[in-house]
Design a protein around this nucleic acid. Structure first.
Lengths: 195, 195
DNA sequence: TAAATTTCTTGTCATAGTTCAATGCTTTGG
DNA sequence: CCAAAGCATTGAACTATGACAAGAAATTTA
């Protein structure tokens, strides 16, 4: 029986082993939710009240710089979480936008539910620590290559690392993720394919 | 009585309240260590076996790109932790160097000690989760401004945010942190002071 | 299927930042 | 206290990338 919760339970079970009843308790705190493509789940200034696990679909997290240009922080697909942890954790206004790029099936863990979970089952702290830790490690690597590598190399790394994302999202978003203009990405691609 | 552990205990107590005996147990897992300036605590390829809390001194974490240029990931001073979590957590070879910039007084929590701590007192998971979470949030902001802001603005932000670090470390390290060449930083400074 | 919108490409010109090389200034250690 | 090493500044020539403009292709919507 492949329930709605099969994949998320597998996810948390990879961090530490939980009993059936612990998992059931966890599952009951989640809310399933379907959202249409191009829905904004969080906008700048709002307090982020959720962590969302993606069962199906693709989401981007981005922020707007002073000149109105978008910088994409994350593309998230199946089996990933999205949230603005800073806003969520401190319950303060977010600087980020979170937007679906496709129709999505989500499991939502909201603030109160997470509090309850961690209060009643502190072992779940570990799940979230590991989650954040992986995220930190990825973000650090990205910071380093943003600083140290030229755009073309970063683009090739991206293709290699997230081939499926590269298929699914428009190129100008990839440019916004890599930190270059859409035009320049186009020129990079032209140059690559000439070889 | 200001023991060696006063400040670190205060640090962990800010995350969740712990009892005297929990704190004592924690303290006993730590090793105090004095290290000379310019000591390399971790080099690329080694497995990071510690998380170090800084009682006194200043440390940088950096990595070397393909051309041998250094990118600085973090300056850490009093009341901060340094480690390579990716290497530490997975016990795999590090890509980073960790080097003292001043004589330092450290409290070292090594891998086995941390395992024991979290096994016996899972409430400490929370401390480390919050620690990583803050670090992630800072790193995300830095990634965004590296992408979206010009070097001069990033430099001014840095001065404002870490005035004490700016005093303590040589300028070419600040350049390596900001992701620009030492020469260009010098030109930025010249331009700023002209006003 | 046509119209409308969004996405991608290409060219030209502008600029933030790099590299290299030379010079003087500090700090450190014997 | 001097020599050596490390650090900061400056200028000139170069390069990666950005901004703008205009048009082509693709995708969505009606």
């Amino acid at each position: 029986m492949q329930s709605t919760f099969a994949s998320i339970n597998q996810y948390v079970n990879k961090c530490t082993i939980f009993s059936e009843s612990e998992l059931t308790f966890f599952d009951n705190l989640l809310q399933a939710k379907s959202v249409k493509k191009k829905t904004i789940l969080l906008r700048e200034g709002e307090i982020c009240n959720f962590e969302a696990y993606i069962l199906k679909g693709c989401i981007r997290t981005y922020c707007m710089d002073e000149n109105g240009a978008e910088v994409i922080l994350q593309f998230a697909v199946e089996d990933w979480w999205v949230s603005d942890i800073a806003s969520f954790h401190d319950q303060k206004p977010s600087k980020l936008f979170i937007e679906t790029l496709e129709n999505c099936e989500l499991l939502i863990l909201n603030y109160e539910a997470k509090e309850e979970l961690l209060y009643k089952m502190p072992r779940f702290e570990r799940v979230f620590r590991l989650m954040v830790q992986r995220n930190l490690s990825v973000t650090q690597n990205r910071l380093i290559s943003t600083i140290a590598k030229p755009a073309q190399e970063r683009y090739l790394d991206f293709l290699e690392r997230y081939p499926s994302v590269a298929q699914r999202v428009p190129q100008h978003y990839i440019a916004a993720y890599l930190g270059i203009s859409a035009e320049f990405l186009s020129k990079i691609r032209a140059k690559i394919s000439k070889k």
